[in-house]
Computed example of a mutant assay.
Amino acid sequence: MERHEAMPVGIIVQKRRIDHPWQEWSWEPVGVLPWAEQGVRWRLLTEEPDRVRYHAATMTVSLYRSDTEAYVANLETGAPAIYVGIREGDPEAEEWDYEPSFASLSPYEAQDRLDSAEEIIERLELPPAMLEWLEAFVAAHHEDEAFVKRRRDRVDVDKVEDGRGDPRIRQVSDVFRAPTGRKPQ
Rank of each mutant, 00 (worst) to 15 (best):
11 I>R: 01
86 I>R: 02
20 H>Y: 07
122 E>K: 12
36 A>S: 14
182 R>M: 09
181 G>C: 10
63 L>T: 02
173 S>I: 15
130 M>N: 02
163 G>S: 06
84 V>L: 09
85 G>M: 00
53 R>C: 04
171 Q>S: 12
69 E>C: 03
23 Q>Y: 05
147 F>R: 06
162 D>Q: 11
4 H>C: 09
92 E>R: 10
127 P>V: 04
121 I>A: 03
147 F>Y: 14
49 P>T: 10
57 A>W: 06
19 D>P: 02
11 I>L: 15
144 D>S: 13
50 D>F: 06
26 S>C: 08
40 V>S: 00
109 E>A: 10
103 A>S: 11
62 S>E: 15
125 E>W: 01
61 V>R: 01
43 R>F: 08
179 P>R: 14
11 I>D: 00
168 R>L: 15
102 F>K: 06
122 E>V: 08
121 I>N: 05
105 L>I: 09
129 A>T: 13
128 P>I: 04
182 R>E: 14
176 F>S: 11
118 E>M: 09
59 M>N: 00
125 E>A: 13
59 M>F: 03
2 E>G: 04
159 K>T: 14
50 D>Y: 06
162 D>I: 09
98 Y>C: 11
55 H>Q: 13
90 D>R: 09
182 R>G: 01
133 W>Y: 10
156 D>R: 15
35 W>P: 00
128 P>S: 07
152 R>K: 12
148 V>F: 12
115 D>L: 15
101 S>V: 02
61 V>T: 10
156 D>C: 11
8 P>R: 01
184 P>I: 01
105 L>E: 03
49 P>V: 05
102 F>V: 06
8 P>E: 02
109 E>C: 03
46 T>G: 00
150 R>L: 08
84 V>N: 01
138 V>W: 01
49 P>H: 08
122 E>W: 01
57 A>I: 00
51 R>Q: 14
51 R>I: 04
12 I>V: 15
132 E>K: 11
44 L>A: 09
9 V>M: 08
168 R>I: 11
159 K>S: 11
120 I>G: 00
26 S>P: 00
61 V>K: 00
127 P>C: 05
33 L>W: 07
91 P>L: 08
154 R>S: 12
3 R>K: 12
179 P>T: 10
147 F>H: 11
167 P>W: 10
178 A>I: 07
157 V>R: 15
131 L>H: 09
59 M>K: 10
49 P>S: 10
63 L>G: 02
185 Q>L: 11
150 R>A: 11
153 D>T: 10
86 I>H: 00
86 I>A: 00
132 E>T: 14
151 R>M: 13
177 R>D: 07
